[in-house]
Design a protein around this nucleic acid. Structure first.
Length: 266
DNA sequence: TTCCAGGCGTATC
DNA sequence: GATACGCATGGA
């Protein structure tokens, strides 16, 4: 990964990183477009970004914060050129990577991903963003589990999460009481980690896989939503190729974006 | 008005 | 284990 620091900004050089494709592809819900680029939060850490050609610029940060946090968050030590070259042996994946080659998998916070994807169920992306934004506004930042664990669903009514409010609170309870332990979820075999997460009310197979992929960087987790179901039916009727299983979750990210957005301008 | 959105809990077979 | 249905909410 190539970068340099100048005038309080960090310049990252990568052909595999486009802001809109990475920050607006439905994996994170707290980034928004500005006239100059994007701005948003990773948990309670704020950042503004812009881009110029193959260069991504991180504004108002330090080299220290970049090295200790953002480099990891944007997964900058993973070689996506190599990854996409691996995927190119599959025709559909090749097309998906050519369609939006600037997607990277963000290494998000566990709790933030858990709450975010509970909210995502049977919902649309603009509204998911709105609910999460309201939640953060209500608490002056993304609330930790302890702040939510003793609430009643009515307490959350201002954020308009509907039937998901009780699921958020159950998640907060189980995390606070230690019934759900982040390090367990990170280290248990995938199917066991999945089952563990599914003991939370409102967490089924899809949300569990999203938490494992986006909140734990378990790239072998493969979330299947309505869009990926269409991809599977159309292109992989015999199942997703096992040769990609180690990073199937990253491949899923390209496919999800591809199926949702390709054809819009044709 | 009806349908749909990065699903899941529950009832029923 | 598979399938059907309701669910809060707001935009199309």
């Amino acid at each position: 990964m190539e970068y340099n620091a100048k005038k309080g900004n960090i310049h990252v050089f990568s052909p595999d990183f486009r802001l809109s494709e990475t920050l607006d592809c439905g994996q994170a819900f707290r980034w928004e477009e500005t006239d100059k680029g994007y701005k948003g939060y990773a948990l309670d850490r704020y950042l503004e970004l812009s881009e110029k050609g193959d260069e991504i610029i991180l504004h108002n940060t330090s080299e220290e914060e970049f090295l200790s946090f953002w480099k990891n968050y944007f997964d900058l030590d993973t070689d996506y050129t190599k990854l996409k070259s691996l995927y190119s042996s599959d025709e559909t994946l090749k097309n998906a990577c050519n369609f939006a080659g600037g997607i990277r998998l963000l290494r998000q916070d566990f709790w933030e991903a858990l709450v975010s994807f509970i909210i995502s169920q049977n919902n649309n992306i603009p509204r998911i963003k709105k609910i999460i934004s309201s939640l953060c506004e209500m608490y002056g930042g993304f609330p930790d589990a302890k702040k939510l664990c003793s609430l009643s669903p009515e307490d959350l009514s201002p954020i308009r999460a509907g039937f998901r409010a009780k699921y958020i609170i159950d998640a907060a309870k189980k995390v606070t009481e230690g019934e759900i332990d982040e390090s367990d979820v990170r280290t248990l075999p995938l199917d066991q980690a999945r089952k563990k997460l599914m003991t939370i009310k409102g967490v089924g197979p899809k949300v569990a896989d999203c938490v494992l992929l986006y909140g734990c960087y378990r790239t072998d987790a493969f979330p299947v939503d309505v869009w990926i179901k269409r991809v599977m039916a159309d292109y992989y009727p015999d199942g997703f190729p096992s040769e990609f299983s180690e990073t199937a979750g990253i491949a899923q990210q390209y496919l999800f974006h591809y199926i949702r957005n390709s054809g819009k301008n044709s």
